[in-house]
Design a protein around this nucleic acid. Structure first.
Lengths: 223, 223
DNA sequence: TACAAACTGTCATGCCATGACAGCTGTCGT
DNA sequence: ACGACAGCTGTCATGGCATGACAGTTTGTA
């Protein structure tokens, strides 16, 4: 047996697996939107793709896990965008722009993101509490990764310093709150999701501005 | 049939119900700590109190719901303490003190809080992801209430102004982050939970300080 | 082609959660 | 004190989620 992870020249088996996985996700979202998350059974999803229920659980650990794949991609993109921001940028500003870029990608559909699926995700979250709970937990776990990225940018050790954790939490809650207000407001007073995120982070920026290590000197000059 | 909620002179039936409920909570925590949350079945809990499993679900909506009762009390106390803080105090400072008071109560056992159960809750959260997910969701829901209390103190309308939501999210994440670092650190670099909360909120206070409406004038004098 | 590995379906199991129904217990009016 | 009634509980049944075991099939490789 050779190493499979490196064996990127995928064969038919791997292609079929990816196809099955993607079909399951697609079918699941369609039925969730149609009937609601809780009213949808795993068997229905599996039948729609013509596989057994047992196979479904070989691709996804739980019914919630299907919709979380999308969130996983969002957060991966968020971290990538954050690390790609110019080093001189203040930490919170970099987080803000990363969040806005992700939201914008979700809303417009660039970078392989599907706006329809994004809206579906929103609807599912609103109606099913178990999905919301799993989503929150997932986001909470990823906060640890964000904290490490922030610590690297601030040039401090996350084991000693509480600040990167606090900043990560702030960014996390900034996004969460924006999402909440956006969902509840509907087409309300706050505008699109990227707009709400911009507002929330601007409020935070006005108050907090831990400089990055690289920007410590530069920021003094620019003001 | 008379109004039961006001009928505070509780009869035997109500007393028995409360006793059963409390016994279920106690037995559940004991078995959870002993065997772990996931490895414990509802039937075991019910058997320990000598009721049927069906009765368990008449007291608690789910297995997670048992451990969330404790968190419910914590959050109720938090809101009460926040609203009891002097009106002149800045918002975030008031939130900080409320959080510290709750943490202190949990750690020392005043106000009817049981430190042993508090530690048990921590252990259960660490080991069971479903409980953590439910806990996060519950906390997220309560954030809305906190935001309204903050808005009242700031003298603004929560439907128009994003700031109370942001502040509530900040406080929420401050506590959550403190709890995370405290759990992970164990007897680590940050000290007791109330100490970690104090540190986290102090970091926030140094940056953010939306004044309360009442303190707007007074704060200018005191400095 | 033959073998090994991986994938799938079927069957079985255990637990969570809920509805329906009958029996028991307390509460209250007379 | 007693009977009617409301509420609580147990039993039974159901359905869905999630997982383990095993055999059959497909795929990649020697």
């Amino acid at each position: 047996m050779r190493d499979m992870t490196i064996d990127a020249a995928v064969g038919r088996r791997e292609r079929k697996k990816q196809a099955t996985r993607e079909s399951l996700i697609e079918a699941a979202f369609a039925i969730f939107v149609d009937k609601g998350f809780d009213a949808t059974t795993v068997e229905e999803i599996a039948d729609a793709v013509d596989v057994s229920s047992r196979t479904f659980f070989r691709y996804f650990a739980s019914k919630e896990d299907v919709v979380l794949t999308f969130q996983e991609e969002q957060q991966a993109m968020f971290i990538a965008r954050f690390e790609a921001r110019p080093p001189a940028e203040p930490v919170l500003t970099a987080l803000k722009h990363a969040a806005i870029e992700v939201a914008h990608a979700c809303e417009t559909g660039v970078s392989g993101f599907d706006p329809a699926r994004f809206v579906a995700l929103k609807t599912i979250m609103e109606t099913s509490s178990s999905v919301l709970a799993s989503s929150l937990q997932h986001q909470q776990q990823k906060q640890q990764v964000v904290a490490e990225a922030i610590a690297a940018r601030m040039g401090v050790d996350p084991a000693d310093d509480l600040r990167p954790h606090v900043v990560a939490a702030i960014a996390n809650c900034g996004m969460r709150t924006a999402a909440d207000c956006w969902e509840q407001g509907g087409s309300g007073p706050f505008g699109s999701l990227s707009d709400v995120i911009r507002q929330a982070f601007t409020l935070l920026e006005e108050s907090i501005n831990y400089p990055s290590a690289a920007a410590a000197a530069a920021s003094r000059d620019s003001r």
